[in-house]
């Protein structure tokens, strides 16, 4: 259940970003989660709902953008989408590639408001 650690880390990062921007409350968090991170979006949502209580994100919504796996073939340099955990290059069949997308775990942006707003 690393979803709870992720939810807590998201909340902390969002609260810090809001404070740095002079805001008090976070109303929305936007994050990107790569497929390699093996995060269950439903569990992440539940973990977030539990972890946000009593924080600057107490009334915030969480938007999760999943990012699929992409690799670059070492043999032919082709950039391709990896589906079904099949890591072979679809052009040349080359085994093994550098991952170009899919390992993200990022807080991209937040919506925040000050106490006298909303």
């Amino acid at each position: 259940m690393h979803e709870l650690s992720i939810a807590r880390a998201l909340i902390e990062a969002a609260a810090t970003a809001a404070r740095d921007a002079g805001a008090q409350r976070v109303t929305r968090l936007r994050c990107r989660v790569g497929a390699l991170r093996m995060v269950d979006p439903r569990l992440l949502g539940e973990a977030f709902a539990a972890a946000r209580e009593g924080t600057a994100c107490a009334s915030a919504e969480l938007d999760v953008t999943p990012v699929g796996l992409h690799g670059r073939c070492r043999a032919c340099d082709h950039d391709f989408s990896i589906s079904g955990w099949d890591w072979r290059c679809p052009i040349c069949g080359g085994e093994g590639e550098g991952l170009t997308a899919g390992d993200e775990l990022e807080l991209v942006s937040i919506d925040a408001e000050t106490s006298d707003e909303g």
Partner: peptide, 11 residues
């Protein structure tokens, strides 16, 4: 207000 963060969650 919208605040851009782009921060690794496990920073």
């Amino acid at each position: 207000m919208r605040v851009d963060v782009l921060r690794n969650v496990f920073a």
